[in-house]
Write a protein that binds this DNA or RNA. Structure first.
Length: 491
DNA sequence: AGGGTACCCGTA
DNA sequence: AACATACGGGTGCCCT
């Protein structure tokens, strides 16, 4: 089977219980591997660009595209990635999309009504404080009310952020700084949070509940430049977490009767990948001994013993650790940590003197990227970085950050994909588990299943084992498991 | 009316 | 001048 959007075709075959062809060759995915930042991966776009022909979906054109892709994949060393990873994954994604996740529509509708009522109340309060009615959702109008009509200004010594077009920003970060200046700020923040929940999550999700009472997202296999998946209609990879209304929302996702929701989460997978790729001895040691990595980092950069690490020190270290994966500079670190620029600079310098191999590794990645104009991960997945030799310093620096992030983010993504494939194979082999365990969602470093209660215990062991064994790093992979009666009530 | 963009914001 | 990676998506608003 060869063509575009094979995931959709395979879903059709599966739904009508027809056989799946042995060989699958998705042209969109193939060209995505060859260059992951094309505008799109349709035949209409690719055929003129790569084989200089109009796309007419004929056998002839499809075959010509395939021949080009096969050749190129071979040349770039990505045959294995294509045939052994992405194509088998396609089948797992098809299953996942068919499965969907159960939603309690009644609960969600109640939530919708409550949010609507509360938003009306907040709107009235905001109008009263403002002394006028206006569109709270319009940053322009809101800015006019806050900064002109009410003349709210920054407290002494604090600079207020401007948007790229020069207007005073009304984003969360800015409003929080102004909290003490006027009662209206808290109301706006509360309104924003609830409006976001209703407009982005509650309402669209209600519309997307299928006849089977479930929501079936669409996974985009060609949606990112790093090899991650993305998800749309709805995006199941940015469901809110952590605040009260988010908890209520997640409470609407439920397993089928007799099943539980069970999530398997790779713990610190990107930092583990970074430790392994860089070979940094301190970080490897920390993971080998299953230490609290952020606490350990805090002890290192502050030059204190582990037991002297304060929660605040740990928080800085956590920001620092994540920042390192992204190539954060001291200005950004200062901003996100609240430190002065000078202190931020010192911390980063300290970080790199403690974890020398990380610095070395990053320099090597940048050097190779400049030489090749691409960067690749251990599996040969590749991202082109033409800007890394740009004469614009900003563009070149940005490409450098993309370069050091790519091998980490993309290997972590591959590891999850490998685990998904292994799990798919395992489930096919275990007849006695037939329909007792279903993979529902993947969220970058997490897999969510629904599992029949009589096999939960055994399944937890099998799945986490497959995940932890999916890829051999120089540090162990660790999986944490939670299960519950809703997506919120998990432990 | 529909397209493009600015701003904002949710996740890993 | 930009200064942390990767995404999808809602609403406002200006344009054609």
């Amino acid at each position: 089977m060869i063509g575009f959007d094979l995931k959709e075709k395979i879903k059709d075959l599966k739904k009508t219980r027809r056989g799946i062809p042995e060989e699958i060759f998705d042209l969109g995915v193939a060209f995505w591997l060859i260059n992951p930042d094309e505008e799109n991966y349709t035949g209409e776009y690719l055929a003129p660009k790569y084989i200089h022909r109009e796309f007419d979906n004929s056998e002839e054109v499809l075959d010509e595209l395939r021949i080009y892709a096969v050749d190129k994949l071979k040349e770039l060393g990505m045959e294995k990635l294509f045939y052994k990873l992405e194509m088998p994954l396609l089948l797992v994604l098809a299953d996942m999309e068919i499965n969907g996740i159960g939603v309690n529509k009644d609960k969600l509708e109640i939530l919708n009504k409550a949010a609507g009522k509360k938003l009306l109340e907040l709107t009235q309060k905001i109008y009263k404080e403002a002394g006028a009615s206006f569109n709270i959702n319009s940053p322009k109008q809101l800015g006019g009310i806050l900064f002109n009509k009410l003349s709210i200004g920054a407290p002494a010594g604090i600079k207020i952020k401007k948007t790229p077009t020069g207007a005073v920003s009304t984003d969360f970060e800015t409003l929080v700084l102004l909290k003490k200046e006027h009662k209206i700020i808290d109301l706006i923040l509360e309104y924003r949070e609830l409006f976001k929940l209703q407009s982005t999550y509650i309402k669209p999700f209600l519309e997307l509940i299928a006849k089977d009472g479930r929501i079936h997202t669409n996974y985009l296999q060609t949606g990112t430049v790093t090899g991650r998946l993305s998800s749309e209609n709805p995006n199941m990879q940015n469901i809110p977490a952590g605040n009260k209304s988010a908890d209520e929302f997640k409470d609407c996702f439920e397993p089928a009767r007799g099943y539980s929701l069970v999530s398997f989460d790779y713990s610190q997978i990107e930092l583990r990948v970074l430790a392994s790729l860089s070979g940094d001895p301190k970080m490897i040691e920390a993971f080998n001994n299953d230490l609290d990595i952020h606490k350990m980092t805090a002890a290192q950069v502050n030059n204190v013993p582990l037991e002297k690490v304060t929660p605040q020190m740990r928080q800085f270290a956590k920001t620092l650790n994540f920042g390192m994966v992204y190539g954060m500079g001291f200005i950004a670190f200062a901003k996100s940590s609240g430190l002065s620029a000078a202190d931020a600079k010192k911390f980063i310098a300290e970080y790199f003197s403690d974890f020398k191999q990380i610095k070395k590794w990053q320099e090597k990645v940048k050097e190779d990227a400049r030489k090749n104009c691409f960067v690749s991960n251990l599996n040969g997945r590749r991202r082109w970085l033409l800007n890394i030799v740009s004469s614009s310093q900003f563009l070149a620096k940005q490409a450098e950050r993309e370069a050091i992030n790519m091998p980490v983010q993309s290997l972590a993504a591959d590891i999850l994909k490998i685990a998904m494939i292994k799990i798919g194979e395992e489930l096919r082999l275990r007849d006695q588990w037939n329909d007792k365990i279903r993979l529902l969602l993947t969220i970058h470093d997490e897999l969510l299943f629904e599992i029949k209660d009589d096999i939960i215990k055994e399944a937890k062991g099998v799945i986490s084992g497959l995940m932890e064994g999916a890829f051999k790093l120089s540090v162990p992979l660790k999986v944490s498991i939670e299960s519950g009666r809703t997506w919120n009530k998990m432990d």
